[in-house]
């Protein structure tokens, strides 16, 4: 059995992103006071929140692209190359941000 957890994480990451984005947007863009409802600028800028939010976003985005690649790329070699590329970029982005 393959792909069950990756598929499930895509959904979970999506749900995390929805709440994360809601917080991100409300606090950063819509609220002049840096606080709206239960969200606060402090929460949104904690390293933990950032890490989970960032990881989810990168996972969700790149897993989505990976899936599209599976569907549209017929050549096995090209598919492997593209998938490796997607993986490298996502890993690079994630480490660069988490390292900071």
């Amino acid at each position: 059995m393959k792909g069950i957890l990756t598929w499930l994480f895509q959904r979970i990451a999506g749900v995390i992103l929805i709440s994360g984005l809601a917080a991100h947007f409300t606090v950063m863009h819509f609220s002049g006071s840096g606080r709206l409802g239960g969200f606060s600028a402090e929460l949104v800028s904690t390293p933990c929140f950032n890490a989970v939010f960032l990881a989810s976003a990168i996972y969700h985005g790149f897993y989505g692209l990976w899936g599209i690649a599976v569907e549209y790329i017929q050549s096995k070699n090209l598919l492997k190359t593209v998938q490796a590329l997607l993986f490298s970029i996502s890993a690079l982005l994630l480490t660069a941000w988490l390292a900071a």
Binding site: L65, I68, L93, A96, W97
Partner: peptide
């Protein structure tokens, strides 16, 4: 969903790159 997904993934990459 597909088109928006690709656009968002693209934006995410650029966004993260520029912010960094």
């Amino acid at each position: 969903q597909r088109v928006s997904g690709v656009l968002l993934a693209l934006f995410l990459t650029l966004h993260l790159y520029f912010m960094k």
